[in-house]
Nucleic acid binder design. Structure first.
Length: 427
RNA sequence: GUGAGCGUGGCUCAGUCGGUUAGAGCACCGGGUUGUGGCCCCGGAGAUCGUGGGUUCAAAUCCCAUCGCUCACCCCA
C-alpha cells in the first residue's frame, strides 16, 4: 500500500516552488521598502496562546486547531495563524523595549483542520505582517497600501474592501442594535438564526435573497461608531486617498477572529472561487496587553501564499525553466574521465555545470543539454579527444568553436571559464 | 460536520446499454541524421482500470461496500 500525504497536506513540487519563491522575493523586497524586518517563530505553541488571542468561541479554536498533548502531557497546538506567535515573541523577547515601534513580518506554514477545497488546505502558507506600537490611522492606510502594492507588484489585481468594527466602547451598542433588528425580522434562514446568536455581524453577508431584503434596512456599524473610532476611520480613508489606493467601504465585512477592532480590510480576487480573499487583516489594539505584554496598539494582515500562487498560475506567465551555464557532453570512457573532474572544478569556481554520466549518445546528450537549459555545451568527442580537441557550442547562436584540451585540468578549466566569459559578454 | 461530482500508464483524458491482446495526446527511452538540441517521422517501455466483495460463461463497464480526490455549504488566507 502506497503511503500518501495527509488530506489537505500538499507537496510543493519544483515548478510550484518557483512561484512561491517569486512571491516571497517580491514580498521581502516590498516589506523592506516600508521598514519591516523578518521574524521567524515556532510552528508549535502552547494551546493557551491561541485560545487567548483568537477567542474561545471562534471556529478556529472550537473545531479547527491541530491540538494535542505532547509527551509531557502539555497541550500544544500547531499554529493556525501567525499573529499570536509573533506577538508572543515580541513580548517574550522584549522587542518593545528596543524600539517602541516594531514592524515585523513572517512567512511560513499554518495549520487548520478544515475540509479542503479550492484555495484552502490544512497546511497552508501565509505571509503575516504586524505593526506594533502605533495607533495613528495613517499607519493603517500605509499597511493597506503596502499590501496593495505587493499585489500589483506581483502583477495581480484585487480590490480593497475596508470597514471599521469600532472598539470596546462602541461595538456593544451596535451589536445590541443589530440583534434588536434581527429579532424583529421574520423568516430568516436557519443559518442566519444561528448566526444571530453566535456572530450577528455575519448575517449581513448571507447569500439568501429573502434575508438580504431584510438587511437592506439593517443598522450600519459606521453609524454606531464612537467619535474616536469615527475619526480614526475618516483619517484612514483620507490616507488611502492621499496614496491613491482604490478601495470600497464594505460595512458588511466581518473578521472571524475576536481580536480585531476598528480598521479591518480584505483584498478580494474574483478568480478564486468562493475562497476569494487573498489577504485580510486589521487593527487589534489591546491584544498585546491581553497576551501579557505592554498596552501597545497593533495592526496586521495575512496573505495566503496558495491563493496568490493560484492567481499567478492562472495567468500563464510562462514559467522560466531551470538553466545551467554549461553542459558537458563527453563521449566514451576516456573523455568521461576528463569531463567528470573538470565539471567539478568549474562548479568550484561558481559555474552551474551539468553532465551526463551514463555516456549516452551525443544526440541524447544534446537533448539533455537542451532540457537543462544549457547556454553552452562542451563536446568531448571520442576522436577529437584523442587529438586534444573539444568543441564549445553556443546553444542559442549554434556557433561552435574548437577548444584545445590541456593536460592540466585546472588550467584547462580556466580556459573554459575564460571562453565562456568572453562569449557571454557578447550578449 | 453536511451535500454533489469524479477515481483508467508519470500527467491530461477516451473507452462504460458487459464480449477477444484497454486506447490516444503529452512526458520518458531508442532510432531516422555511422558524432550535434529545440520541429518532423518511426519504434519501445510503462496500467493491480482506486480497493474489497457480489452478479455473470464473461466486468474498466452492472450491484454493494469501502477508501481517496475535487467542488460547494459552514468558516477562512
Amino acid at each position: 500500500m502506497k503511503i500518501k500525504a495527509l488530506k489537505g497536506f500538499k507537496d510543493i513540487i519544483p515548478d510550484e516552488v518557483d512561484i512561491y519563491r517569486f512571491i516571497e522575493k517580491i514580498s521581502r523586497d516590498i516589506f523592506h521598502r516600508f521598514g519591516f524586518r523578518e521574524i521567524r517563530v515556532p510552528v508549535l505553541e502552547k494551546t493557551d496562546l491561541f485560545v487567548r488571542s483568537l477567542g474561545v468561541a471562534t471556529d478556529i479554536v472550537e473545531k479547527e486547531m491541530y491540538t494535542f498533548d505532547d509527551r509531557n502531557g502539555d497541550s500544544v497546538t500547531m499554529r493556525p495563524e501567525g499573529t499570536a506567535s509573533v506577538l508572543r515573541a515580541y513580548i517574550e523577547q522584549g522587542l518593545h523595549a528596543s524600539s517602541s515601534l516594531q514592524k515585523l513580518y513572517t512567512i511560513g506554514p499554518m495549520f487548520r483542520h478544515e475540509r479542503p477545497q479550492k484555495g484552502r488546505l490544512r497546511q497552508f502558507h501565509q505571509i503575516s505582517v504586524e505593526v506594533l506600537g502605533l495607533d495613528h490611522p495613517r499607519i493603517d492606510a500605509e499597511v493597506m497600501a503596502m499590501a496593495y502594492l505587493l499585489l500589483t507588484s506581483l502583477g495581480l489585481s484585487a480590490r480593497l474592501e475596508i470597514n471599521s468594527l469600532g472598539c470596546q466602547k462602541c461595538r456593544p451598542g451596535f451589536n445590541q442594535a443589530l440583534r434588536l433588528f434581527l429579532d424583529n425580522c421574520q423568516g430568516l434562514c436557519d443559518d442566519c438564526l444561528r448566526r444571530r446568536d453566535t456572530n450577528p455581524l455575519r448575517v449581513l453577508d448571507c447569500k439568501n435573497k429573502s434575508c438580504q431584503e431584510h438587511y437592506q434596512k439593517a443598522p450600519f456599524i459606521i453609524q454606531h461608531l464612537c467619535p474616536e473610532c469615527y475619526g480614526h476611520f475618516q483619517t484612514v480613508k483620507e490616507g488611502l486617498k492621499l496614496l491613491r489606493i482604490p478601495y470600497t467601504v464594505n460595512s458588511f465585512m466581518v473578521r472571524g477572529l475576536d481580536y480585531y477592532c476598528r480598521t479591518t480590510f480584505e483584498l478580494i480576487s474574483d478568480d478564486l472561487g468562493t475562497q476569494n480573499a487573498v489577504g485580510a487583516g486589521g487593527r487589534y489594539d489591546g491584544l498585546v496587553k491581553e497576551l501579557g505584554g505592554p498596552d501597545v496598539p497593533g495592526l496586521g494582515f495575512a496573505m495566503g501564499l496558495e491563493r496568490l500562487a493560484l492567481l499567478l498560475a492562472s495567468q500563464d506567465n510562462g514559467s522560466q525553466k531551470a538553466w545551467t551555464d554549461l553542459f558537458i557532453a563527453a563521449l566514451g570512457p576516456k573523455a568521461q574521465n576528463v569531463a567528470f573532474p573538470v565539471s567539478h572544478y568549474l562548479r568550484e569556481k561558481g559555474l552551474s555545470v551539468t553532465m551526463d554520466v551514463m555516456d549516452r549518445s551525443l544526440k541524447s546528450q544534446m537533448k539533455q543539454a537542451d532540457r537543462a537549459g544549457a547556454n553552452f555545451v562542451l563536446i568531448l568527442g571520442e576522436e577529437e579527444f584523442e587529438k586534444g580537441q573539444a568543441q564549445l557550442r553556443d546553444m542559442r547562436s549554434k556557433n561552435q568553436q574548437p577548444l584545445t584540451i590541456k593536460s592540466d585540468l585546472a588550467e584547462w578549466g580556466d580556459d573554459i571559464r575564460w571562453e565562456l566569459g568572453t562569449l557571454n559578454s557578447e550578449f
